[in-house]
Design a protein around this nucleic acid. Structure first.
Length: 554
RNA sequence: AACCCCGUGGUGUAAUGGUAGCACAAGUGGUUUUGGUCCACUUAGUCUAGGUUCGAGCCCUGGCGGGGUUGCCA
């Protein structure tokens, strides 16, 4: 039952809700073809398929739509299950393959032939294409269209036995060669493929087409609502035709919604594959990829992705969603849960001249100001520290609240320091800062009540651990690369910047997948290849930066 | 070109014949030991022309615009 009474329902939930009110028990399904990795567009579909089922007290099946042995592979079957599970959904024992139904589908085909609604056609693929006509002109009927039922039955059985070579014959539906919907012009039901199937091996040499196998698989599983994306809308009349022609029950209802498109990325399997094969990214789980495994490696959480899909809503409108919304959902989630630590990416050495040489103290730092239950930790402080280079300006503009000659700032959870001297090399580059600290300001507040406007992060140079940090930016430099002819030319050449960083020693303990906030910078996730000896962090998403914004305006 | 689908602020959506609302983005201010978070405020919308109606974003007709479809892929 839909729990939020006053929340408006999307059009699909409205339909399902009415059906439930009429006594319908909801069964949906997520039916990927195991020929590639899932991406965030699939996540939307998964959230809809599993979400609708759960909300209305039903179940959602996970079914591998494996009807084309030449394109599919077990490699993908596992990754698909991992990704759906990681997203937080459970199919219980309802895990199926379309190939489970090959025998039943064959029987359905025989039934359609017996009803005189299908025939074996000897036309070649090219001939079929010629006979089909085009969008404005009707097609013409195959010369084999009027074979007797007996002959069709015989031929189809012999197709199954392997008596004919690939492509020599097909089983076709007998519908209407003049139909304005070209999918209704006697579409193929079975084709001959002497190919090894990843599950059925060599037991079949004929394989059912999607339109036929999909609707009947839905019926076999008792699917009530077959939810899919808009490009299948025009297939629906054929979907309904097959169910009727085969005499299959129940008759699932197909409802279509628009796919997810995201700014600054591409979503089609073909393009994603091209990015991987062309080495424009480092594999399917490259953190810049919109694949589920890529997002996971980057540090995205299932909660953030689900929230995003929820906010998106469901419509039939073609749309291009702003990736900023996804990032908003991510930050909102991570802000609540990610512990804070300090890390310096572009180090500038600071020597605190009045701090005793060799002394070290442990300063108490809050792990997450948004969540007191995360407690505190101790951060070592010493005479030599690193700060971020862009937290210092020799000639600061107005409203620059960070460190500058003569200026005072607070070191986060540390002391107030004041810059007394700027040291440069022969080329004029700043190599080091000399500062003094106020011993009275330990922890970050002054007993005399004086305020500082700026607080900057730091690490003790004597205690810091090194790490490789991979800073990711959007993969493409244009909003809708998929719309460009030369979409690969739109790749953002600076989508990955690798840096050496200095971190609090605490981070040595970070295990792969650990997500934290580097204060004032962003959320970072320990990469799967990270080890205590060689720490690697991926930048999941940067913090919002209103200072950068005001600067860009000038 | 034929058929099908879709047009609401910049973006994603709500309003199911009765006050066009929400979120993101953008902007302004406040709070702040993260220039983060949080809070307040501002900007900005029904593709178009008719029709039905007391009343139309919603219903009808035409136009315009966008998408999908012409695999023995899914």
């Amino acid at each position: 039952m839909s729990e939020e009474k006053n929340e408006p329902l999307d059009f699909i939930r409205t339909i399902v809700s009415n059906d439930v009110a009429n006594g319908c028990k909801v069964v949906t399904r997520f039916p990927p073809e195991p020929n590639g990795y899932l991406h965030i567009g699939h996540a939307k579909a998964i959230c809809i398929d599993f979400g609708v089922a759960r909300e209305f007290g039903g179940v959602c099946h996970l079914r591998m739509d494996d009807t084309n042995p030449t394109k599919e592979d077990v490699e993908y079957v596992d990754s698909i299950q991992d990704d759906v599970r990681w997203l937080g959904f459970d199919w219980e024992d309802k895990f199926f393959y379309a190939s489970d139904y090959y025998e039943k589908l064959y029987e359905f085909a025989m039934e359609i032939i017996r009803r005189g609604k299908a025939f074996v056609c000897d036309l070649s693929a090219d001939e079929v294409k010629e006979y089909r006509g085009n969008l404005t002109e009707p097609g013409k009927e195959s010369p084999f269209r009027n074979r007797s039922i007996e002959e069709n039955l015989d031929l189809f059985e012999r197709m199954r036995k392997g008596e004919f070579p690939d492509g020599s014959r097909t089983l076709r539906a007998k519908i209407d060669m003049a139909h304005p919907n070209v999918h209704m012009r006697d579409p193929a039901i079975y084709r001959i493929r002497h190919a090894h199937h990843h599950r059925t091996g060599d037991s079949w040499c004929i394989y059912p087409m999607y339109d036929f196998a999909h609707c009947l698989s839905d019926s076999i599983e008792g699917i009530t609502h077959s939810l899919c994306t808009l490009e299948f809308e025009i297939h629906r009349p054929l979907y309904d035709w097959f169910i009727e022609a085969a005499g299959a029950t129940p008759h699932p209802r197909q409802i279509e919604f628009s796919r997810l498109n995201l700014t600054y990325t591409v979503m089609s399997k073909r393009r994603l594959l091209e990015l991987v094969q062309g080495k424009h990214v480092n594999g399917w789980d490259d953190p810049r990829m919109p694949t589920i495994c890529g997002l996971r490696r980057r540090g995205y959480t299932p909660e953030a992705i689900r929230k995003f899909c929820e906010i998106l809503g469901i419509t039939k409108t073609n749309s291009l969603s702003d990736i900023a919304l996804l990032e908003h959902c991510l930050r909102e989630d991570l802000n609540k849960r990610a512990p804070r630590v300090m890390a310096v990416m572009d180090p500038l050495k600071v020597v605190i001249e009045n701090y005793p040489e060799g002394q070290c103290e442990e300063l108490e730092a809050t792990n997450n100001p948004e969540d007191p239950t995360q407690g505190e930790r101790l951060v070592p402080f010493s005479r030599n520290i690193y700060i971020d280079r862009n937290d210092f300006m020799e000639e600061p503009p107005k409203k620059f609240f960070r460190l500058a000659p003569g200026a005072e700032v607070r070191l986060r959870y540390g002391y107030f320091i004041r810059c007394t001297e700027v040291i440069k090399d022969a080329a004029g580059n700043i190599t080091e800062l000399r500062c003094t600290y106020d011993p009275e300001t330990r922890g970050g507040s002054a007993p005399d009540g004086r305020k500082v406007k700026g607080t900057i992060h730091w690490v003790s140079a004597d205690h810091a651990v090194e790490a490789e940090v991979r800073q990711y930016d959007r993969l493409f430099s244009v909003e809708n690369p998929g719309a460009e002819d030369n979409w690969l030319d739109c790749l953002n050449q600076d989508s990955l910047e690798i840096k050496k960083a200095y971190l609090e020693p605490e981070l040595t303990k970070a295990v792969p997948g650990f997500i934290c906030q580097f204060e004032r910078q962003g959320y970072f996730c320990a990469d799967k290849d990270s080890t205590p000896e060689k720490l690697i962090f991926n930048r999941t998403v940067a913090l919002r930066d209103s200072w950068a914004k005001t600067q860009n305006k000038n």
